[in-house]
Amino acid sequence: MKNELDSSKVLHAYENVMLHGEPTENGKMYQGIEAYSDYDGYNVYMRGNGVELRMGFHNIYHLDYDQEHLKESFLKKLENLAK
């Protein structure tokens, strides 16, 4: 996958969700984005609007989505959360 995500912005968005979000079964939810991590913290997950982002060790990531416009909307939300 082409490296289209800035890992530092993704991690900043993750931290904002974890800081300001409401608890969920898996992690926290903030502004329509749920964020959580695995037990050791090596992988972080963010999902919303039918898109799931998994970012792992060495900032390797994978996006799961069905439609391109959903991905674009999700990435815009992450951009806003990273500010």
Rank of each mutant, 00 (worst) to 15 (best):
A13W: 08
H20R: 10
A35S: 10
V44T: 09
E52S: 07
H20M: 06
H62L: 10
M46F: 01
L19M: 03
D64G: 03
S37Q: 13
L11P: 03
M55K: 08
M18V: 12
V51A: 02
M18N: 09
Y42C: 11
N59M: 01
G48Q: 10
L53K: 06
D64A: 08
E52R: 06
Q31F: 00
L11R: 14
T24G: 01
E52I: 11
H12L: 15
Y14S: 08
D40K: 02
F57M: 06
E52W: 00
F57G: 01
D66M: 02
L75V: 15
G27K: 01
E15Y: 01
H20W: 05
V44S: 02
D64L: 04
I33R: 01
H62K: 15
I33T: 07
Y14T: 13
L70Q: 14
N16E: 14
D40Q: 09
K28E: 12
M29T: 12
K76H: 12
V10I: 15
Y65C: 10
N43E: 14
E68C: 00
K71W: 06
M46N: 09
L63H: 03
E15W: 02
Y65H: 10
P23C: 02
H62P: 04
K28M: 09
K9F: 04
E68L: 06
P23N: 09
T24A: 01
